[in-house]
C-alpha cells in the first residue's frame, strides 16, 4: 500500500507545518516553565477526544523522518489505542516503529511510564484527559489559573485530606498530583502513582498533551518532581503485592487478569515489552512457560 505521506495527500506527520510550529512553540514554552500549562490551538484530529488527540498532536510536532516511534496504552503495545496511533504515524509520517523501549526515540504513552529506564535523547509524550489538577475541587478556570499564578495550592491537600478522612489513607492511586521543580502543581496524567517516582530526575524529555482541553505542559530532563503528601501520611508508590506470573518480575507494575469463571486470576506486567524482554532472557514466572517452548 502506498502510504499517505508518499502521495502528497498529507503533509509529513499529518499536521501542516504552521500548526506544528505553533505546537512546537507551546512545547518550548512548556519546557522552559516546567509544569506550567501552556494553552495551544488544538486541532481537530481524525479520532475522538479521549483517544489521545493531544498526545498525537505533540508527537506529530516532534517527529522527524529518522525517528523510531513506540506507542503504548496501559503499558501494552498491542491494544487498540496503541495499534491505531502507531499505524496512523506509519501511514502519515512513514517513520520506523518499534515495541522496544530501548530502541525508541519518541514514545507516546497512555497511563504508564515504561519499566525500562529512559535515556537522554528520548521523548515521552503523555496523553492527558484533564490537565488541571485542581479542577475537581475548583470548577472555575479563571480561579484555578489565579491559584497557579499565586501558588495557592492548599486546595490540593484538601483533596488528599478527604481521601484519608474517608478511606484511612491517601486513596488516590492514579493521576496523583505532583509539584514540579518547587513551583507548579501538575497532573501527571492518569499514570498509576507507582510511576510517580519515575517522573522526577528522568533523563528523557516528558511532554504532556491535552487535546480537548487545549493545553501542553512539560517536564524537562532531570527535573525535581515531588508527589504531594502529609507528614504523617507520606506518599507511597503502591502496586499489587505479587510477582509477575509470566516473567517473575518483582518490581514491575501489574495487571490483574481474571482467567476463568471460578475467579482464578493471574498478575502480569502491564509493560508488555518489559515482560517479553525478561522472558526472552530466560525468566519464568509462576504460570509462565519458557519462551523457547512457545507462547505463554
Amino acid at each position: 500500500m502506498t502510504e499517505l505521506f508518499e502521495t502528497g495527500a498529507y503533509n509529513f506527520a499529518y499536521l501542516d507545518e504552521q500548526t506544528k510550529r505553533m505546537i512546537r512553540r507551546a512545547i518550548l514554552k512548556g519546557v522552559a516553565v516546567p509544569g506550567y500549562q501552556v494553552p495551544f490551538a488544538s486541532r481537530e484530529m481524525p479520532m475522538p477526544y479521549g483517544w489521545g488527540t493531544g498526545g498525537v498532536q505533540v508527537t506529530a510536532a516532534c517527529l522527524v523522518p529518522e525517528d523510531r516511534l513506540k506507542v503504548i496504552d496501559q503499558g501494552a503495545d498491542d491494544t487498540t489505542n496503541a495499534v491505531s496511533i502507531r499505524k496512523f504515524f506509519q501511514r502519515t509520517a512513514g517513520v520506523a516503529v518499534t515495541e522496544a523501549t530501548i530502541e525508541a526515540t519518541v514514545i507516546q504513552t497512555r497511563h504508564r511510564i515504561p519499566e525500562t529506564p529512559l535515556r537522554e535523547g528520548q521523548i515521552v509524550v503523555y496523553q492527558v484527559p484533564i490537565p488541571e489538577p485542581l479542577r475537581f475541587l475548583e470548577p472555575r478556570e479563571t480561579e484555578t489559573r489565579k491559584m497557579h499564578e499565586l501558588e495557592e495550592y492548599g486546595l490540593m491537600h484538601v483533596k488528599l485530606y478527604e481521601d484519608i478522612a474517608r478511606h484511612g489513607e491517601i486513596a488516590t492511586s492514579y493521576a496523583y498530583p505532583v509539584k514540579v521543580e518547587g513551583r507548579y502543581v501538575m497532573d501527571p496524567s492518569p499514570i498509576p502513582k507507582f510511576d510517580n517516582p519515575k517522573l522526577g530526575d528522568n533523563a528523557a524529555i516528558q511532554l504532556f498533551g491535552a487535546g480537548r482541553e487545549q493545553r501542553i505542559y512539560a517536564v524537562p530532563p532531570y527535573t525535581r518532581v515531588v508527589s504531594l503528601d502529609f507528614d504523617d501520611h507520606p506518599f507511597t508508590a503502591s502496586k499489587a503485592p505479587h510477582d509477575c506470573d509470566l516473567c517473575g518480575a518483582k518490581g514491575s507494575y501489574l495487571d490483574e487478569v481474571i482467567t476463568d469463571d471460578a475467579g482464578s486470576r493471574m498478575y502480569v506486567c502491564s509493560d508488555t515489552d518489559f515482560c517479553a524482554g525478561r522472558r526472552a532472557a530466560g525468566h519464568v514466572g509462576r504460570l509462565g512457560v519458557a519462551m523457547a517452548d512457545g507462547s505463554a
Binding site: 475541587l137 492548599g154 486546595l155 491537600h157 484538601v158 485530606y161 502529609f230 504523617d232 501520611h233
Partner: peptide, 23 residues
C-alpha cells in the same frame, strides 16, 4: 465547599497556610 467534608472545609485554611500534618 459543598463537595468537601466538614473537616476538610475547616482544614482548608490551615492547609492553605502550609499545615501538612493530617493528625
Amino acid at each position: 465547599r459543598m463537595g468537601v467534608s466538614a473537616g476538610g472545609n475547616v482544614g482548608e485554611r490551615l492547609m492553605a497556610i502550609g499545615a501538612r500534618h493530617y493528625g
